Simulated assay, not measured.
Amino acid sequence: MAQIRLKNVSKRWNNFIGVDNFNLDIADQEFLVLLGPSGCGKTTTMRMIAGLEDITEGEIWIGDRLVNKLEPKDRDISMVFQSYGLYPNMTVYENIRFPLKVRKVPAGQHHERVMAASKMVELDDFLQRRPAALSGGQRQRVALARAIVREPNAFLMDEPLSNLDAKLRVSTRAQIKNLHHTLKRTTIYVTHDQIEAMTLADRVVVMSKGLIQQVGTPMEIYDRPANTFVASFIGSPAMNLVHGEIHNGVFTGDHIRVDGLSTQVNGPVTLGFRAEDAVLADSNAHIEAPIYSVELLGEATMISMRVAGELVSIKVGKDYRAEIGDVVRVNIAPSACHLFDRSTGQRIATAG
């Protein structure tokens, strides 16, 4: 069992708070993603779980063991870092094998376990090469194989795809997803890339400034963001957020008027909606504004306009043709709208 539990975990350096009162239960075999911008505390949280960073307060449990005082080597976890950390003088085979030698695994088991790990990440043709002769994607696969060969209870992965180009990120992401399905090990994955979080995670922990903003499945976080920070961080493009006033269920702002919102709130609010939830309209539109830009994406066209001082994106059909400056009319279903408190940013209602 590799259930991991963090209870009231904090990390401080003098007056700077890196992680503040972090509480989370990670289920056995769960794929959990820590998501947030640089400096939000996600890597610090992972390093505390790994034992590479001392905690200031709280408890970390792996299975039924309190591991606060345990050395990293005694926690039965494997880490994959953004930097591959391969030994340049060793072949791929020896790099994968090295953790077994360090942990004094009987030599008779080495070859079988190295070959099994190599096969999982499709490295069999490269075992006699040295890291300098490998591409970035191949080096990352060596790092993955080196983590797999130990057969740990849990994997910790810190931005493992950041150094890869876009095409390699997609293929390696699929490989990590398949490995988790095959190995069935608890995995904690750190990233600032919300697409990685959405595609890989069973659950996502969105973090900002050392605090948990929301925990949920990718679709829970996408469909019902807890606050404007989560709404603006999840989605490609991010959720449109427009400031305005609401009275008797009618939201108004510059170039926008949306009625039929079911809420008792009156006064200044922030209205949110996704680009794909807006549709072009002929008349009586919720939004009427000149086009700011037009971007052909291939499968769709993205148009943007300034609404209530904010740049708003709308996804339309790939055959849509318009010029910058043309006035466009858009409707948004009230059920697709999100309302947030203007001062705190917290979710206050979902219309519909």
Rank of each mutant, 00 (worst) to 15 (best):
R306H: 08
V328M: 08
I256F: 02
R321K: 15
S293K: 03
K318G: 05
V279R: 11
R306D: 07
A308I: 00
R203K: 14
Y222L: 06
L296R: 10
A231Q: 01
G216N: 11
H247V: 15
G325V: 13
P218W: 12
N240A: 00
T301E: 03
K318H: 14
Q213K: 12
G317I: 09
I234C: 04
L261V: 14
L296Q: 02
N227F: 10
L261Q: 11
R224W: 03
I291E: 05
V204M: 11
G272A: 02
V258F: 05
I221H: 06
I234A: 04
K318L: 11
V205Q: 10
S208Q: 15
G253S: 10
F233I: 13
Y292G: 00
G298S: 04
V307Y: 01
L271S: 00
V215Y: 12
V269L: 12
E276Y: 04
L241D: 02
S236T: 15
P268S: 11
V205A: 08
V250Q: 11
I234F: 06
M302T: 02
I291Y: 05
A285L: 02
G253C: 07
P290M: 11
P225S: 10
R274Y: 02
M305L: 13
G317W: 13
V307A: 02
E220Y: 12
M239H: 02
N266G: 09
T252W: 11
Y320K: 13
H247F: 13
L280D: 00
L271F: 00
D254I: 05
F273E: 00
V258I: 15
G244T: 08
S208M: 15
I234K: 03
M302S: 03
V215S: 10
R257S: 07
V269E: 03
E276D: 06
K315W: 02
S313A: 09
Q214S: 12
V312D: 00
D282P: 01
I246L: 13
